[in-house]
Amino acid sequence: MDVLQVLVPIAYSAIIIVATWIMARFLIIIIRRLMGQSTQMLGAQIQRLVWLIVWLVGIILAIEEVGVNPTILLLIVGLLGVAVIVAIRGPLENFGARYFTFGYVPFKVGDNITVQGHSGKVIEINSISTILLSHDHVVSIPNSTLMKETVVNTTHQAWKAVSVPIVVNSEIDVPAFESEVLKSMNKLRYHFDDRFPPILSLVSRNRQSTELVLNLMIRNPEKRDAIINEVNKRIEEITANAKKTRKQSQQKQ
């Protein structure tokens, strides 16, 4: 058997894998830039989805190149996918809705809302449902319902509240980052209710990332989207600068 006949497909296959890696990186950078104008959590989810699709296509092409018929693999993946979707359609709907509610439904934990005749304080928003404390009862509202039904936020001055989620690398210097964010927000101070200065809170932290949330109270609800876009743009710049500074100090070391 000719060695070349074996090595060439393997080489092509390797090239496809490398190209897949480059493509995935390239698309993620593009999405990150585009999603800089939207919420970071939603952006992270879309990045993950695109990464998965690119790698799935790349792997199938690479397998095909070495002479293995991917049809059966595709069939198995497809059938498994359909079975999973059918089996957990309800939770999936809620799960998907969770990521949309995170960015676009105007309430957060601690707010008082009314939905489908249920009124109460939001005590939890998880992947499946939103939990309300209504008098002494716990009411669970599926997240998909929140996408379909009218939700009334009855919290005092809720229309002013804007929460901007921020995910940064865990190595970031949080005090310096916060200081820069607050300085940057001062440039927009005219748009904020001056009785409620911007407050940055640390939500969680793991080895890879630190999750923060910037709480703002705006003066003019019509400018909500414009303010969110501007705030996200500024945070992205601060994050990029912080990354640059970190790299420079690492190089010095």
Partner: peptide
Amino acid sequence: AEEIFMSDDFPDFSYYDRLTAE
């Protein structure tokens, strides 16, 4: 005094508090 929380010096006040909290 009224505007202190949105003054240009306040981020450094917060910096100290955050540094301590960290």
